[in-house]
Design a protein around this nucleic acid. Sequence first.
DNA 1: TATTGTTATACTCTATAACTATA
DNA 2: TATAGTTATAGAGTATAACAATA
Lengths: 139, 139
Amino acid sequence: MTEPSSPLDQQLWDFVYGYDAAYDRAAQQAGLSAAQACLLDQLTGGSSTMGELATALLCDASNVTQLVARLESRGLVTREPDPADRRVKRVSITPAGRREHRAVHRAFAFPAESVDRLTAGEQQLLSRLLAKMRRPGGS
Amino acid sequence: MTEPSSPLDQQLWDFVYGYDAAYDRAAQQAGLSAAQACLLDQLTGGSSTMGELATALLCDASNVTQLVARLESRGLVTREPDPADRRVKRVSITPAGRREHRAVHRAFAFPAESVDRLTAGEQQLLSRLLAKMRRPGGS
DNA sequence: TATTGTTATACTCTATAACTATA
DNA sequence: TATAGTTATAGAGTATAACAATA
């Protein structure tokens, strides 16, 4: 494990580096940080509790409190106590938040541009390889 | 472009998300931030100037100043004026810095584990697909 | 008593603007 | 005057510990 990285490891590093940089740029163009854009992304499928967001974003609950507070002050999300258990706060994306989120995705051209360089067959192949890398016993 | 993400786009997102999370964890286990680990990584191939580091890390020069200052105070890098042009500072990794950098790479199991689930032929294929995604006119 | 979320605090990352030193 | 880097400053991301509200 002390040998130099294989070309494939380096290629993966470069791909991820480019992907991250493109996402940061896309979020910034929409006036958001990457963390804020990720949080909005989590909410597009429906509302979440603070704790669910912390789990999804792999960060501490106190961090979510601050991220949500900033987004709420800009009118991009709302935060309301759950009627059933009033300790729980349900966070929802607002129409303005959805617009910002769409703006990020429009600006985030990296995956689309990369994938478009592959034929349909190559795309299927890549999908299969990613699935197999993800967990043992792929298709 | 308003349609939901294709499965492949989602797979790429998930891959990058897992990769980033694994790198953050690996750096933290070595007592470094991801940004610090990246900076050390840049120096393993030889010394760099502050400006070169800013370019490689896609960030402002003033940020590099602070990153290097923290690493220098921990003895992981050195910073010395270039004899030829004393405005320029040459940053080098120390033996202690190399040890930390190796610790990060040992803990960063994600790419190795992922790639090891592929056969040699599949790895070649993935390499070819990544190359083609990178720029038009692949092999 | 246990759980959910917030507050207080501290540290790092990051950029902008003003500055110093050197060329 | 132009360039390389630093300093001052400010805002955002992040975590830990102590806390409040609710269950």
